[in-house]
Structure formats: structure tokens, C-alpha cells
Lab assay of single mutants.
Amino acid sequence: DETGKFLVLALYDYQEKSPREVTAKKGDILTLLNSTNKDWWKVEVNGRQGFVPAAYVKFL
């Protein structure tokens, strides 16, 4: 159920650099879980949760 969740689009490829991050490919649609940090947003992609740089994604 996606009610109340926001989707964001990956603008660039991002390769995770730590276990707390997730890899995303340009064009991926990610479920935004938390955007309270202006630099790192928590997302879910391909069943995995983790952080990506906020500058790499935008709201749909």
C-alpha cells in the first residue's frame, strides 16, 4: 500500500559506499521513507532500504 508515501526519481546512478546506503540507477523510481536530512534521504528500492544523496533524486 503506497498511501501516504512519496515517490522520487533517481536523476543519476548512485553506487552505495556503505551498508547504510543503497544503489540506485538513473531513472529508478524510489519510495521516499524520510527526507528530514537535507543531504541524505532514506529510500526503498528493490526491497532494500537505505540512504541516497538528496541531490541525486527529485520528487515525481
Rank of each mutant, 00 (worst) to 15 (best):
P19T: 09
S35W: 15
V8E: 00
A54I: 08
Y14V: 03
F51R: 01
N34E: 14
V57A: 00
A24W: 09
S35Y: 10
Q15C: 13
D1C: 15
Q49K: 09
P53E: 06
A10S: 04
L9A: 03
V43D: 00
D28A: 07
L7H: 09
Y14W: 10
N46D: 12
L60H: 06
E16K: 12
R20T: 11
V45C: 07
E44Q: 07
K42F: 15
V52A: 01
V43T: 00
N37I: 06
K17C: 12
D1E: 13
T31D: 03
E44P: 00
W41L: 07
E21F: 08
G47V: 03
P53D: 05
W41F: 09
E16W: 06
R20N: 13
N37M: 07
E44T: 04
P19F: 10
K38S: 12
R20H: 13
P19N: 10
L7S: 06
N37F: 07
K17N: 09
V57G: 00
T23K: 02
K42H: 10
K5V: 12
P53G: 06
L30P: 00
Q49Y: 06
W41R: 00
A54V: 08
V57Y: 03
F51E: 02
L7T: 08
A10H: 03
Q15A: 11
K25C: 13
F59G: 06
L11M: 10
S18P: 02
F6V: 15
A54E: 04
V43H: 00
L60G: 02
A10K: 03
E2D: 12
W41A: 02
N34M: 07
V8A: 05
I29F: 05
V43E: 00
F51I: 05
E44V: 05
V52Q: 01
K58W: 09
V45K: 06
W41E: 00
Y12M: 12
N37T: 05
N34I: 11
Q15W: 13
K17D: 03
K38T: 09
A10L: 15
K5L: 12
N46W: 06
V43L: 03
T36R: 10
V57R: 00
K17E: 06
I29Q: 03
T31S: 06
A24S: 04
D39P: 02
V57P: 01
